[in-house]
């Protein structure tokens, strides 16, 4: 595997149910995403975008195939690790359609939760979180609860949380769906900047064609297969 490849999927198949109710959602999907690349994942609703994202994120087990994250092969017809959560915690950052922050933690605690779980010293985790908040221009909200922030601010905190563990990969599931066009473009530029500056591979699910020009490549699911435009 080449060093520049951050995500590599070979012949991924995902089926739900069995017997008469068996449904194949992803069929023989193979693709790679390089470091520093922002890739859009586009498909109609129910085509399996989130399923694909969750398989790459080691949340959902594929039926068969191979998944490489960086230099590590994590799936080969079965999980090759007993601790997929550790892989998520150390290698992957997640951004969702809604911010999904923990409501009983303040902004900085939300951001430092994963790093602190990774045994990063509290002072170091806080300093990194503050630098991220400054980067997103919300450092004055560090000690506010999510309920005290606007939707856009919360989404920026969610992105900061995804970056807090210095991930190799960011999986974003419609991160701009809840934002207006101006905010969406701002978030897209931010993600592109992160991908470039921090050499992170980003796969972003989107329904919004206006966001596609900001992406390096466009990945589609057509007839259960993954294809690049």
């Amino acid at each position: 595997m080449e060093v520049t490849q951050s995500i590599r999927a070979n012949n991924i198949v995902k089926e739900f149910g069995k017997g008469d109710t068996l449904v194949r959602v992803i069929d023989d999907a193979s693709f790679t995403v390089n470091k520093g690349e922002l890739v859009a994942l586009v498909a109609p609703s129910g085509a399996g975008k989130t399923t694909l994202l969750m398989m790459i994120g080691c949340v959902l087990e594929p039926t068969s195939g191979e998944i490489w994250l960086g230099r590590e092969k994590v799936y080969d017809d079965r999980w090759l690790t007993n601790n997929s959560r550790q892989i998520r915690r150390e290698k992957i950052g997640f951004i969702f359609q809604a911010h999904y922050l923990i409501p009983f933690l303040n902004v900085i605690e939300n951001i430092t939760l994963v790093p602190q779980t990774n045994k990063v010293p509290e002072a170091e985790a806080n300093a990194h979180a503050m630098s991220l908040l400054k980067y997103f221009d919300i450092e004055d909200k560090a000690y506010n609860k999510p309920s005290q922030l606007s939707g856009g601010q919360n989404q920026r905190v969610a992105i900061a949380r995804a970056l807090a563990n210095k991930p190799e990969i960011i999986l974003a599931d419609e991160p701009t769906a809840a934002l207006d066009t101006q905010r969406s473009v701002s978030v897209l530029k931010m993600l592109k900047k992160i991908a470039t500056e921090q050499n992170v591979a980003i796969i972003m699910v989107t329904h919004d064609d206006e966001m596609l020009p900001y992406c390096d490549r466009i990945m589609k699911i057509e007839n259960k297969k993954v294809v690049f435009e």
Binding site: R85, Q86, Y100, I102, V114, T117
Partner: peptide, 16 residues
Amino acid sequence: MKEISIMKLIGIPDSI
């Protein structure tokens, strides 16, 4: 449950 699911999703171990 929502928060617990989020924590599991972002990699927080069950023990915590």
